[in-house]
Amino acid sequence: MFAFIISRLLQAIPVLLVVGFISYAMFAFVGDPVSIMLGQDFTEAQRVQLVHQLGLDQPFFVQYAHYMWATLHGEFGISYRLARPVSDLILERLPATIELALTAAVLALLIGVPMGVYTGIRRNGVLARAFMIFSLVGVSLPTFLIGILLILVFAVVLGWLPSFGRGDVVHFSHWSTGFLTISGLRSLVLPAITLGMFQMTLIMRLVRSEMMEVLRSDYVKFARARGLSERVINFGHALKNTLVPVITIVGLQIGGLLGFSIVTETVFQWPGMGLLLVQSIGVADIPVMSAYLMLIALVFVGINLIVDLLYYAVDPRLRVDRRALTGAR
């Protein structure tokens, strides 16, 4: 198990190098930060000085090496737009995005899995059909539209919940949390639903189709023939067998939630990384964009590792294969 984790972490290195190269390449090929930073009026001397200050007059690969070296030390450069270290900016924004994404993911799992099980078992029930229609809406409506509709109904018409921002937050050194204040929690509701809606309906439909598949299997029939209760069969035998594909999809989706909550954060003016990214793209703030890219790559590597570990927890067949595999090496 330990060897497996180590080998997975080693495999992550080339991934991060490639992502680092791409994100670095943006410096060289996307936009011209120098002219953006200098504005309209500048002298040639000012330009040369800035270019030198940013290290842009050095050969490409030297710049890349410098960049990766700095990145390894957690130095992502200075934001062109805000003239502050990118690492500070991201650390500031990270908690908001993580809290939003986790809430959305938990919401999606807690509602999506039971709904999927239910619709898989009661295929033709009225409630199951209603869930299916609802899920079709969730899957097909674009996120920004769901967000705007929720704001319209719950913030504008009913006035129950705030329409933007994060509310009051409590700070713990580097971390700021909205979980501990009423206004923070109230602010979280609409964005979390908006962000989690698609995942929830996706999870529900996935669990449903997997359940229907598994319920037809011989071992479920045999479990019935052994006289086990419906509850044990549905949740013990059937649901557990649907978990491997569900874990795969949910893992990727949570990566997506963290990385691409851009639309939701924009709609709700949520002070997270997505909003930071949108604002940075607008002015070609390349250090922020590339740091963001690296961070998302890291998140996906981490999630894939967790997903793989969960596979082994769920499916004993994989454990043996792994043992055999590491033995063969």
């Binding site: 299997s217 011989d218 071992y219 029939k221 045999f222 557990k240 067998n241 769920v314």
Partner: peptide, 11 residues
């Protein structure tokens, strides 16, 4: 049942 490879729950 007929096929012992599929009648036992693998998990």
């Amino acid at each position: 049942f007929q096929d012992p490879l599929t009648t036992l729950n693998p998990l």
